[in-house]
Amino acid sequence: MVTDSTPAPGTRRGDQPPGDVAVPPVPPVAPVLGASEKTLLVLEAAMAHGRFTDVVEATGLAKATTHRILATLIDRQFVSLAADGTYLPGPKILSLAGQAMARIDIAAIAQPFVDELVERTHCTVHVGAKNGDEIVYLVRADSDKPYLMPSRVGLAIPLHTSGIGKAVLSGFTDQGLERFVERVGLPRRTPHTITTLEELRAEVAEIRRLGYAMDREENVPGVACVAAPIRDTTHSITYGLSISTLTLEHSIDQIEAMAPLAVEAAERISAALGHTG
């Protein structure tokens, strides 16, 4: 079959028609950083890496620029230079960090995540904090159910009988767990309460493996929950979140099936508290 190979008007044979010209992709333009953005970038890198070459690599800035900013940060006491040449947090940033930590309101930070979890589960959600050898409820949000949990903000319950408490215990060392048992003696609250060190060790090992804890009617008969640890900037577990309900409405298996929701909410609160990793 013969085709018409006559070139289009205004073109020569062998030329690419203007409409079919391949345009090379335009490379993305790197954003232009202002002075404050560069300073924050260097400060963050210095706290994470410590050595000058690593700071330069992490920021992508020129060596001269990085060195100049680091000198200013050292002069203003946001960064300190150790004897071995590594960069450390300076007095000013440590002071600011302490002030910020003192102003943290875990209840206010957690409330939006708690409210969302109540909407998703239609169960009561608690956030509690470790206070000595007990958990104290800081937040309680109820669902649309016609009943209320036998709990209240400010109520203190033993660590070993609650989901939140056992989530906190999962952050204890083996020696810390032993000392805890020596102090409190693991008093029984219901027929399901853990009352021996061996049982508690096994339970804590399972919590560490799974990433969440269960309260199987161990504190109040007929009430169960699934709980997850909340971590702060130091990676410590001093808070926890739980999804609680009546065993008349949900089986233990159904409650445990909500564990991913509890873990997700706890991780989001942890991130809001500054926890990374």
Rank of each mutant, 00 (worst) to 15 (best):
D54E: 15
T196M: 06
S80E: 08
L41E: 00
T72K: 11
K92G: 05
E264Y: 05
K145I: 12
T233C: 12
P146R: 09
R201D: 08
G163S: 07
K92D: 10
P91Q: 11
L246M: 12
T161Y: 02
P221D: 09
G277Q: 14
Y239G: 05
A265R: 08
V220C: 01
E116H: 15
A102S: 14
T195R: 05
L246Q: 11
A156W: 05
A108V: 11
A228Y: 08
A64T: 12
V32E: 06
E217F: 05
E44Q: 06
S251L: 03
L246F: 15
A272R: 15
V139I: 10
E217Y: 06
T3E: 11
P191C: 10
D20Q: 14
E217T: 07
T276H: 14
A82V: 01
I93H: 03
P146E: 06
T193A: 07
H49I: 01
T193H: 08
E198V: 05
D144S: 15
A141V: 10
R189N: 06
A100N: 05
A262M: 10
T53D: 13
I135R: 01
N131Y: 08
S162A: 08
K92W: 04
K166Q: 01
G90W: 00
A100S: 06
A205N: 15
A48P: 02
A257D: 12
L248Q: 15
L155P: 03
T86D: 11
Q16A: 08
A271F: 11
P221T: 00
S251F: 03
Q99E: 12
